[in-house]
Simulated scan of single mutants.
Amino acid sequence: MSAPLDDDLLELYSKRLHELTREVEHDRPLERPDVTVEQRSPICGSTMTLDLAVDGETVTDIGYAVRACSLGQLGTAVLARQLPGKSFAEAERISEQVRQMLKQKADAPQGDWKDLELLLPAIDMRHRHGSALLPFEAVCEAIAKLRGGKTG
């Protein structure tokens, strides 16, 4: 479970958050994606187009166009950095872990996904969960499409 953030830690998180969100300021569509999905958060209106290139059940590249607050941009930036080379199962596991972190105050992901702890301040801002989860819902929808509509 997360602890409240003191002012110094919040400032550090804020600086890191802005560094990551700058990485997705410009759209990066893939020239030949294997799947493209569009997601919209009905609560806040954030939108995202996600492209995936894959080899079997491994993501080889990710493209995006994200129109969301810094929370949606953060998730997109972390996915863009960490998802290539990862399996569908890993993508689904991380998506579920982020969902549990926000909705059930579970622990933040670690390892390659540690930057997602920057979403911790949003736990108590339920109205922001839609934007924070947007990139992860897009990834899960893309995987389901690639599997022929089946979810795993």
Rank of each mutant, 00 (worst) to 15 (best):
S2G: 08
A3V: 12
A3I: 08
L5R: 11
D8I: 14
L9Q: 15
E11I: 10
L12C: 00
Y13K: 08
H18G: 00
E19I: 03
E19D: 15
R22K: 15
D27C: 11
D27L: 11
D27Q: 14
R32P: 06
P33F: 07
V37A: 08
V37W: 04
M48T: 06
L52V: 09
A53R: 14
G56I: 06
V59Q: 09
V59C: 11
V59E: 11
T60N: 03
D61V: 06
I62S: 06
A65D: 14
V66Q: 08
R67Y: 14
A68C: 14
L71S: 10
G72E: 07
V78P: 01
A80C: 10
A80L: 07
R81E: 14
K86R: 15
E90W: 02
A91V: 01
I94F: 06
R99T: 05
Q100A: 13
L102A: 02
K103P: 00
Q104M: 12
A106P: 01
D107R: 06
A108Y: 04
A108I: 05
D112Q: 12
D112T: 07
W113F: 07
W113N: 04
K114A: 13
E117D: 12
P121F: 03
A122Q: 00
I123Y: 02
D124F: 09
H129Q: 02
L133N: 02
L133G: 02
P135K: 10
V139L: 00
A142Y: 02
K145I: 02
K150I: 03
G152L: 05
